[in-house]
Nucleic acid binder design. Structure first.
Lengths: 241, 241
DNA sequence: TTGGGGCGTCAGGACTTCGTCAACGGACGC
DNA sequence: GCGTCCGTTGACGAAGTCCTGACGCCCCAA
């Protein structure tokens, strides 16, 4: 009965199933969660300490993070702060402590939800769905952006140029996506580097030069004089439709 | 101790304090919540049944709703569904029922959080802050300032003059931004130098002369007789729209 | 009238940032 | 084990930006 509605609501992001990062130092709990989540078609990554949690968050870009507060290497609130410096990904805190002030601390540090152990798997999954749903922008339809010759389908991860598909590498796509989602707005080099490569790459501006060049070569009519992928020297880049 | 951090994080939306709609049929609880919330500078509306809750949600546009599931006139989940048809306002559910399936039901109906009675006021307030914080970026402050021929979009870092984009260098932007954010007010040379170049450049007034000239050349119709970028001799500069 | 302070303008050189290319090495499939 | 694809580096000239000093104007006070 409690099981029946487990897969009822959508819990996907932009077409694919949501990716979950599970952070806990108890292997058994991680295992149980992983099995349950995979059974519901989530993609699951797991970390057993704070350091690898932050690293995985940066490299894998999960759609939601389940975070145990009792980690061996760092305080759970520190992990939250470390995440909130550069991302707003939903964080659901797990903790054995019922103490009110710990809840308050975690929530004010930027956590989105707080579940005390032992918890019901159904409830956790429901809270997970709620977190993913919240984080998914309402404009799910609005993911097709068009310019004269270019068409981006952000949901399907497809780019067409003059009617034929263009192949992009994962990183190229990621850069493109950030720019297109901020269509018309200036995106700072910092934000691009953080969004695509993670917070520790903030200064690797040559990555951007390489990938902007590749995007222009694949998408611009005259790559040397770009019309859509504009450089704002010293500040960042801008996608102009 | 648990009280001390109550007003620490911001819980405002676009400058004003957040508006909360409290929905519960127990007058005592409504009263207690109202007092606590008002003490923390929230604006509070209260409803004691589902029908008036829906009505108040529509007319008062709260930033967050605290909703008791045990209402006299309708099921709590129906209220959530009624809301979700047209708004994504965060809903925090209160309930005396600990049953897991009820939580799942409410969350899947579109609730954002679920707190069981009896609850700690600190915890509820923390969850409230989390909900407001999450929802805030939706109305990303679109700082657009317009004068006759000029349009500044501070968020997108875009300037248009007579309909066509104007390119500014990073420093030019920085100067412009300080002036425009203080639209109509005099900005002293000192403040400009400090904001743009840093505290150790307070006396380099010739920087200002150079950059004001460049801004005028790019933005004024008659740079020699500026209309918007006004010099207040001996004091500073002023942007007049 | 004269001198000086504050301001606007201009242009060149130092410096930073950008675009481009080529090469390396790991991951993956065949 | 071999080729391919992809991400990462480093190097270089080109382009863009910033600072600086010089000069002239205007206004006001001496």
């Amino acid at each position: 009965m409690t099981e029946s509605r487990a897969d009822a609501p959508r819990h996907e992001t932009a077409g694919r199933m949501a990716r979950v990062l599970v952070v806990d130092d108890e292997p058994q709990l991680v295992r149980a969660l992983t099995i349950n989540l995979r059974a519901r078609k989530y993609e699951v990554d797991a970390a057993h300490d704070g350091a690898s949690a932050l690293h995985l968050a940066a490299t894998r870009h999960p759609d939601v993070i389940i975070l145990d507060l009792g980690l061996p290497d760092m305080d759970g609130v520190e992990v939250i702060s470390g995440l909130r410096g550069w991302t707003r990904v939903p964080v659901i805190v797990l903790s054995a402590r019922h103490a009110s002030d710990e809840k308050v601390e975690a929530l004010d540090a930027g956590a989105d939800d707080y579940v005390t152990k032992p918890f019901g798997m159904d409830e956790l999954l429901a809270r997970l769905r709620a977190a993913v749903r919240r984080a998914t922008p309402a404009d799910e339809e609005d993911v097709v952006v068009e310019t004269g010759a270019l068409t981006f389908d952000l949901a399907a991860k497809k780019v067409r140029r003059d009617g034929s598909d263009v192949r992009l590498t994962p990183t190229e796509w990621h850069v493109l996506e950030v720019l297109v989602r901020n269509s018309g707005r200036l995106v700072t080099q910092r934000q691009l580097l953080q969004d695509v490569w993670g917070p520790s790459y903030e200064t690797e501006t040559n990555y951007l030069r390489v990938y902007m060049a590749q995007l222009r070569r694949k998408l611009e009519k005259d790559p040397a004089h770009p019309r859509h992928f504009i450089t704002e020297s010293g500040m960042g880049y801008r996608f102009e439709r």
